[in-house]
């Protein structure tokens, strides 16, 4: 560590890393919380959409040789389509079923997707080339890779776009109405089937986007979705199930805890932070930090 106050520099670097990571975590969390809030589905396959996004990025960039900037929206679009297909095929006929039933189906979908990925791409880790310069951007005592900066900017843009969809569009209005009170929304002429498909597609698209963004930063492996799912749960619980601002802030909080935990406690327990957080939050304040009102059970 160079600099006058190495500990300060180190802390700054951790904070910067956390901010960058938090953006993608928030994307994952928002997708999951939308699906739970509106559809009451605990989506165990969420992480698989994340992995799917990363693999689609690999497919376009590394296998088909497409342009990186073109591959990104294509990967997200494919994630949206896969999400819509899953809702239509798997969840539509389970409307009104209890939460455990849909959970079991999503667990089945998760195992199937992950192992199809394994069969298609093998278990060997893949890396994706990026058009960014390999030398990092140095800002005083901290440094940052161009790729990560790009990830952060795109993630923020997508979060902003999601807020705009939810708050400004007709679809968003119908989604909010369904979240508030499904029966009344249906009576008011909201097409609940369409809202469900759209919600699941949107949530899946966000997860795929997170995967497509982080795939080139890390490596792509079939099991990458497992931790992503569990982290998304941590984020969503932190923010309160069904709360979008909660998921946004929750994503950043988890990223901070992981970075600081890995930096100052032990890097082996980096991934444990999220779960410890879940356990503590649920035992202390089960409604999450930001939920207004959520019934338990």
């Amino acid at each position: 560590m160079r600099g006058k106050i190495p500990n300060m520099d180190q802390l700054l670097q951790h904070i910067l890393n956390a901010l960058i990571l938090g953006g993608t975590y928030a994307l994952l969390g928002i997708g999951l919380t939308l699906i739970f809030g509106i559809m009451r589905v605990v989506n165990f396959a969420h992480g698989e959409l994340y992995a799917f996004g990363a693999y689609m990025m690999y497919l376009w960039v590394m296998v088909l040789g497409a342009n990186f900037y073109l591959a990104l929206p294509l990967a997200v679009l494919l994630g949206v389509m896969l999400g819509a297909a899953m809702e239509l095929v798997l969840l539509r006929r389970l409307r009104g079923a209890d939460i455990d039933t849909t959970m079991l189906v999503m667990i089945g979908a998760w195992i199937t997707l992950q192992n199809v990925e394994q069969m298609t791409w093998s278990g060997v880790a893949k890396s994706i080339n990026t058009p960014f310069p390999s030398s990092p951007l140095v800002l005083g005592s901290v440094s940052l890779s161009w790729n990560r900066l790009f990830v952060f900017v795109v993630a923020l843009a997508l979060i902003g776009a999601t807020y705009a969809v939810i708050n400004r569009t007709k679809l968003g209005k119908a989604m909010r109405a369904t979240f508030q009170d499904r029966d009344t929304a249906a009576l008011m002429g909201v097409d609940i089937n369409w809202i469900h498909t759209a919600t699941f597609a949107l949530g899946s698209g966000l997860a795929a986007a997170a995967g497509a963004l982080l795939g080139p930063v890390f490596v792509v492996v079939p099991t990458m979705g497992d931790l992503a799912s569990l982290k998304a749960f941590a984020i969503v619980i932190l923010g309160g199930l069904g709360s979008i601002p909660g998921a946004t802030i929750g994503g950043f909080i988890l990223a901070f805890m992981e970075e600081l935990g890995a930096g100052y406690v032990s890097s082996g327990y980096r991934d444990a932070m999220g779960f410890l957080l879940i356990i503590v939050i649920l035992l202390v304040k089960p409604t999450g930090l930001f939920a207004q009102k959520e019934r338990i059970g």
């Binding site: 739970f36 605990v42 199930l241 035992l283 089960p286 338990i296």
Partner: peptide, 9 residues
């Protein structure tokens, strides 16, 4: 203390 989806998680 918690049930349903929370308990599972």
């Amino acid at each position: 203390k918690v049930r349903g989806a929370y308990f599972v998680i």
